[in-house]
Each structure stands twice: as structure tokens, then as C-alpha cells.
Design a protein around this nucleic acid. Structure first.
Lengths: 348, 348
DNA sequence: GGTAAATCTTTACGCGCGACAAGTTTTATC
DNA sequence: GATAAAACTTGTCGCGCGTAAAGATTTACC
């Protein structure tokens, strides 16, 4: 702390500082285990002292494969995607990769720009929550020819590697519960921002039919983008003015839709919940962080975003040929559907 | 679409494809206006056809200043920060910069890592929402010596460039309203994750005293990190069990705290709102996207995150010597406190 | 049409590091 | 202590592009 060294900028500077040759230091940064233990400790101490980190651009310019992972999510304000992202970021960092997150913000042109940015960065691999039918399928598939890509949340097509929630299972679960415990659920959709919108709708219908019940669908206005709460709120206000929902139980395509429905119901003076004195039951899907703090706490189905993130990363690393910890058991195939877990609270 | 050209990878390839020399093309990518209109159009057409983008690493390796901006936020799941981030990302992109967002996730060591990552990327400038007292002040200030840094949300110290909300004004506003319209507000704090925790507390006390009222502070348990809702929920459950709040109006340090309070009050059978039949008024601060969909809709003070983002970016670009649009009026000094706007809804 | 200015081309260097080859020193093994 | 293997050093090349200098060509203007 008393001697101010000449500023160490390059790996050259750093290597003379440590008293080693640059290639040796370079080897260390590429794989710490590729140098002798004594050398490794020497370098590690010097790193702490000097705070040196190799220049990211120089490292990745002249490398077969960069250490950058590209992540694209459709909405950066949705806690589900941010939580998923954080999980992947953490795993990536542990494996020595840097996760670069871009949001397509619901807009296909931004998704395209993100793809091009990743191309210009020569990312090693990519994890993408696509915009669905509006996605630049061709561009994504083309990028997928040169680098491994994993899709999450909603599949791009029927063949690309995918990790997400089994909507059929999750809706079976919640429909089962709702039909057993009260009024038949009608289904309140979400804007068709990705394939989940259609899939969940179908999953609901299927679940109802398997129980020999008549499905009831409440169509939500399209074109409202990712502001689910507002779309659902406005639609519910409208529905309540026109006589109410077809049944006294509303199963929403996701929690954010449920937030809008509950807010509108509350403001219309309706009491939401499963009590005797309640007017409406509302259930969601996803288990957002705030769902348990709703009034009433939202009954929903929890997507296992931790597992989705972990498996997507595992799948990606597998394709990158990374030797993972043995605890990272490899998924059997490349299309993984995780089961969801029902979260019984008091809204339904 | 019929002729498949030889794959264009480098700027060299691209320049022969366009029929220009590489330095000219290079000039174009650095500043499209530095080449003749005719040439510019030529290149632009070729870019569309080929989808070529210069390799980011090569570009930034040999440049006085990179085109990367580093952004650090303390919590990637908080809609306030993600909204702020999106705003900055958009402005950065328009100016030809790439915004790289990292989250310190409330942990000082992650904040330090983020700083080091940005150093190794040689970022042109940085916008940071610091962790406050726990921040690596020394590292941040040291980084600030070599590149321009702007702080947002909560100041690092008393001298560094800063853009944020004027807590004194905003709390004056809400305290004024609350005292005028009903019971005196007590103050429900937030975990001391940054300097806002202290500042807002003081702002409340000051506002109360200026009105000759006795301030009442409800201390919140520390050490709960960024899970504000849970901390507030648990604390409220405890408080209600022990006889309730000191007054019948609770002014929360932020909306997420208010969510927790409202949820706990609801589950305790209390009615929240400003009606005659209500047991408790609850007000927040920030105006989160979900606040208007709470039950009841949350009365709060809106931080102008759009302006915070815009001004932080403007300040940064100014320091980078970028010539901005004239509509970007330059802030007079480097510490900008924005006024907040009260959002009267029905919770208080 | 002549001249200067603007714009382009050609040529060359180097950013910081990965990668590889060839030579030298250290470590492990018996 | 001899021998081979492991680990290191020295030296060199090139990734794709920014940048600068010097010369060739085009444009603008009277």
C-alpha cells in the first residue's frame, strides 16, 4: 500500500510484474489449472495486488470462440425474465463466461438488432426467449447454424433446443384444482406476444375437456404489447360493465394478467377470493415475486425459473463442450418441459 | 435473394463487396456523415444486403475510446431500475453506443466485480446506481479518474455528478398531503441498502417538523437486503400483533415497502384506504408500474425515471464531448435533483 | 476549362492478446 | 544422479480494425 507501482495495463506489464513470461500468464487466464500450483498462486496474488484483468476485446478478438454468451429476453421489466436472466448470468460467470443481456422489448426489429449485435460480437452461444410468431425465425435459425442456441420460455419451432414449462401439465393442475373447489374456471388470455399465449389457451381447453367440462374463453384485446396489467384491467372493466365473466372463477394466462383483473374487480367493488362472501375467484400462472403480496394473495402455478435457467445453461455448455460439474446431470433430450407446482393462496 | 455471395465476414470483404476501400468504409462506420452522400448510400444499401457489422472487439481494441457504456444497477428485479436502464439503453444506442448492464444484486463484491469488468472493457463512461455506504467508493472514485461517471438514484458522495429525485421535495409533497387530509403519517423505513434510506427518513422528519408535527418512525429490520416486500410484510405482521402503527397513516420509504405493508394489513383483516370505513392509510414513494394496480391503488410520489435516465445520459455524453441534439439542453450543474409528482389514488 | 478543395485509394503500422514452435529450465521418477 | 516429462521462456505471427500519411481522383466553383 506504500509503493505505487508503475501502472499495469497490459498482460505484458503484468507478466513482468509477476516475474513470468506472457504466454504463461496467458495460459493461466485461459485455464488456471494449466499452470503449476506454485505459478498459479503467484499469479493470483499479483492479480489481487494489481487488479489486472486482460482486455476483453483483445482476448476475444483472436480466439476460436469468445467467452461471451448472448441472452435475449422479450421484456426487461418482467420479473420472470429478470430472475431467469440473473440465474443464467450467475452460472455463466462461474464457468468463465460473460453474459450479455439484451431486451427485444417486444419489438421484432429490436430482436433482430440484438441478433446482429451478437453476431458482431461473435458470441459463443445464445439463450433466447423469442417473440414467437413475430420472431425473425430465419435470422435466428441462421445464427443457430454457426453457434449453439437454446430457447427458453416459449419455443421458436418444434425442433430447436428448448427449456420451458409444461403448459399442459401446469394448466391441468390448476384447472383440476379450480374445478374441484368451486365454480368452473373461464380462461382469461394474454396478448399473443409469443407462442405461450396460444399454448396456454389450448392447454386450458384440453384440461377442461378431459374433465368433461365446457371451456369458456374470454378473449383479450390484442395489440397491447407487454403491458399485460393494463390490457387485462381495461378488458375486465369492460366485461364487468357488460354483465361479468361467464363463470365466477377466472383463470388467467399469467399472473400479470391476474393483477389487472383483480385490480379492476376491486375497483368495481367485487370481493376476490375463495371465501363464501366472495364474488370472484382469480387464479394466475407463473408465480411472480409480487403474487404472494397481492390482496388477496394470488393462487397460481409456479414456473421453476431456477431450473429453467440452470438447464438452459447446462444444455448450452454441453453444446459448447464444456466439462461441467458432475452435479449438472445432462438432460436426456434437447426439448425439456418442466413441471410446475401449484401455489395455493387465497385468491382462488 | 437469388445470388449467394461469398460470405462477408470482415470489413475487408465488405469493402470489396461495396467497391470501396477499407479506410473509407471504416470512416463511414465511425461517422456516416464523414463520407459523401453518394458513398454513404452505397454503403447503406450494401449493409442491408449483406447484414455486415464490424466486429465489436476489433473496433474497440484499437480505439482511443470504446463505444461501450457501463451501467450498474443494484437490483435487476426492481422495475424502477429496469425502466431507468431501458431509457438509458435507448439513448445510448441512438448515439452509437452499446450499453452494457450489470447488476450488483445488492452485494458489494458484485459491484466491485462489475467495476473491474468495465475496466477490462475500457468503457467510455459509466452510469451507476451505487450501493451507498457499502459501495466500493475508492474503486469507483479511482475509475472515475480515468473515465466519466454519472451516479443516479442515490449519490456516491457529495461531489460526484449525480441525477436523482429530490427527496426533500417529494416527501414535503406527500407529507403535506397526508397531514392535510387525515391522520398524521408515521414513517415506515426501508432497509439501508443505499443513502436514500437515510435521506428519505430525514426528509420525512424535516417535513413533519416544518409543519410543527411530531414525527413517528417505524424502524424496519435491517439485513434483509433487497427483498423489501418481505421485510415490510414481516415487520407489519409484527407491528400489528403488538398493537398497531403509532398513527393510522403509514408513509412508506418506497412502493415496494408499501406493497408489503398493504398485504400484511389485508391479511390481518384491516381495510386500507382513505374512506370513512377504512382502518389504515398507506402511501408509497416511486410509483412503480404495479402501484396503480394494487388493491387499493397506491397513493404515491412518482419519480421521473424518464428524466433521470435522459439527464444522466445527457450529462455523460456532455462529458464525453458528444455533440448532442439541441433539444438536449445541458444541465447547469452536475448535481441534478428532480422534483417528483404526487399520484393521488385511493390508498391514502 | 482551370484551380482548389473535397474525397477517395494505397500503404503501412499497431492495438493486446491467443496460439504455436523451438529451445531452456525445473520437477518427478526410479 | 541420470533421464524423461512437465513446465516454463523466447520469439513470432495474426486476429479485424482504427488511424495516419501520401498520392490519385473527383467535385465544386468561378
Amino acid at each position: 500500500m506504500h509503493a505505487v507501482k508503475k501502472t499495469i495495463r497490459t498482460m505484458e506489464d503484468f507478466s513482468t510484474f509477476v516475474g513470468l513470461s506472457r504466454p504463461t500468464v496467458s495460459k493461466y487466464f485461459n485455464d488456471p489449472n494449466s499452470v503449476r500450483k506454485k505459478t498459479r498462486e503467484l499469479i493470483e496474488i499479483a492479480v489481487k495486488q494489481s487488479g489486472f484483468r486482460p482486455n476483453i476485446f483483445a482476448v476475444n478478438l483472436n480466439r476460436r470462440r469468445t467467452n461471451i454468451l448472448g441472452i435475449i429476453i422479450p421484456n426487461s421489466s418482467d420479473p420472470f425474465y429478470t430472475a431467469l436472466t440473473r440465474r443464467i448470468e450467475g452460472i455463466a460467470e462461474q464457468a468463465g463466461y460473460l453474459a450479455f443481456v439484451l431486451s427485444s422489448d417486444g419489438k421484432p426489429e429490436l430482436e433482430e438488432r440484438a441478433i446482429e449485435t451478437f453476431k458482431s460480437m461473435n458470441v459463443a452461444g445464445s439463450i433466447i426467449a423469442p417473440l414467437g410468431v413475430q420472431s425473425h425465425q430465419d435470422k435466428l435459425l441462421k445464427l443457430g447454424e454457426s453457434i449453439p442456441m437454446i430457447y427458453v420460455d416459449s419455443p421458436l419451432d418444434t425442433t430447436s433446443p428448448f427449456v420451458g414449462t409444461n403448459n399442459r401439465q401446469s394448466f391441468q393442475l390448476i384447472v383440476d384444482y379450480l374445478t374441484r373447489s368451486g365454480d368452473l374456471p373461464c380462461y382469461f388470455g394474454m396478448p399473443a406476444v409469443n407462442s405461450n399465449a396460444i399454448e396456454r389457451r389450448n392447454a386450458y381447453v384440453e384440461a377442461m375437456q378431459s374433465l368433461k367440462f365446457q371451456p369458456h374463453i374470454v378473449e383479450v384485446e390484442q395489440g397491447s404489447g407487454w403491458d399485460f396489467e393494463k390490457a387485462a384491467f381495461d378488458a375486465t372493466v369492460d366485461i364487468l360493465r357488460k354483465g361479468g365473466f361467464p363463470t365466477k372463477t377466472v383463470l388467467c394466462a399469467n399472473d400479470r394478467v391476474a393483477f389487472g383483473v383483480i385490480a379492476a374487480a376491486f375497483q368495481a367493488g367485487l370481493k376476490v377470493g375463495r371465501g363464501q362472501d366472495c364474488d370472484l375467484r382469480v387464479a394466475g400462472h407463473d408465480d411472480q415475486p409480487l403474487s404472494r403480496y397481492m390482496c388477496p394473495p394470488l393462487t397460481t402455478v409456479a414456473q421453476n425459473y431456477n431450473e429453467i435457467g440452470r438447464l438452459a445453461a447446462a444444455l448450452l455448455f454441453h453444446k459448447l463442450g464444456e466439462h461441467q460439474d458432475s452435479k449438472f446431470e445432462l438432460p436426456a433430450n434437447e426439448r425439456i418441459l418442466l413441471n410446475a407446482e401449484i401455489m395455493l393462496r387465497t385468491s382462488a
